[in-house]
Nucleic acid binder design. Structure first.
Lengths: 209, 209
DNA sequence: AGACCAACATTCCCGGTAGTATGCTAACCT
DNA sequence: AGGTTAGCATACTACCGGGAATGTTGGTCT
């Protein structure tokens, strides 16, 4: 057993509390307007705690980004391993992705706020490397969808003239969730399932009668 | 003829130059990281010129936002007036919207950067009112699409169980353009047309074989 | 031709924020 | 038991950007 972790939460847990709070603040105020003090306030703590665990504000954002991607992978990869036709697989992946968007909303919104902003800023060399790592991670994730599109095209179950473009459309429709979805106390798991299924259906089958 | 406008560009033109530069900076650096000096630099001028025309940075953003919405309305409304079936109308509206996204990219990207950020900030009462006006403008625009979805549903040419959800999916797939589309010097009008048509086709007809 | 004003440029100030340096305390080790 | 260190809090600094005050210039009107 490590130090200081009998009563006081443990290191990994404390870290996640910080990223949770950060994701919340980023969603509420945007990347720049959210201050370290804001994050600390949510925790009922001060900057000291935050800077004890993270070198810089960018480092916090990177941690949030990485965690957000991890949530996505964890949700979609089980579907990938299923031995089902590509069209059905894509449908289930879309549903799973939509659920993750809603379940981890603060994290997923945070993703959209940064990325390209940090391409220009006076980021250090180390930060730039981490950033490219995050971009590659995201490309890898979207490639999971493109691969399924390709195999469905090859099998003849999917009609995809342009895989890249179709992939963009699919991801766009799904990721758009974080722009308009709002967490409401009166909504049930069934409501979220209806949203996820409805979105996936619209994407796969279109809206033409 | 007004003053000072024989050789030196004219007021309206000077205004548009500023919003153009602002949209460029917002796209490149984000809303907060883009400074007034950045905007002035793009113009080859100084803050004086900018602050002569705009009260605050927010005012600039509002002007950019309004102009961006205007571009959208101008592109889509002609299609709305056409006397064609709802499914075909929606297709053409989607194509028109996609073209506007690409043609006025800096403006459209700027839209995504702000909105909710300014919901919390220490904006004045006047600014808050302008903001709600912009939001209503955007809702009105998206309602154009929802209306067509509804009439297509009524006519039986569109299969839309949930109009709101389908509208979200359509707008999400189209607006996603501003996240991944990059202006390249070697791309022709035909390339952009292929993107617009391909996106619209995917949305209306889906990807199921 | 001289007053006048729009359209800028220059200069300065002040609030706010990322980051740092240091202080404090309670757990663990030996 | 006292030294050590993790895990914070407190106090402080340096800097940067928004916005305002003020200066400058060139065209216009009478």
């Amino acid at each position: 057993m490590n130090k200081h972790q009998a009563l006081s939460a443990g290191k990994a847990e404390s870290l996640q509390q910080i990223t949770d709070a950060a994701a919340q603040c980023f969603m509420a105020k945007g990347l720049e307007k959210a201050t370290i003090d804001d994050i600390a306030d949510v925790l009922g703590a001060t900057k000291g705690r935050v800077y004890h665990h993270f070198r810089s504000k960018n480092a916090i954002y990177f941690a949030v980004h990485r965690q957000a991607m991890q949530y996505c992978f964890d949700a979609v990869e089980p579907v990938l391993k299923q031995d089902i036709p590509a069209d059905e697989k894509l449908f289930r992946m879309a549903v799973a992705h939509a659920h993750v968007m809603m379940d981890t909303l603060p994290y997923q919104r945070s993703i959209r706020l940064g990325v390209d902003i940090y391409l220009r800023g006076p980021t250090t060399q180390a930060e730039r490397e981490v950033l490219t790592e995050l971009i590659e991670q995201r490309n890898g994730y979207e490639n999971l969808f493109r691969d399924v599109l390709r195999s469905g095209k090859a099998a003849g179950t999917l009609d995809v003239p342009n895989v890249d473009l179709a992939g963009r459309a699919v991801m766009g429709a799904l990721n758009g969730l974080v722009d308009w979805y709002r967490i409401r106390p009166d909504q049930s798991a069934a409501d979220r399932a209806a949203i996820a299924d409805g979105l996936a259906h619209t994407i796969i089958y279109g809206i033409k009668a």
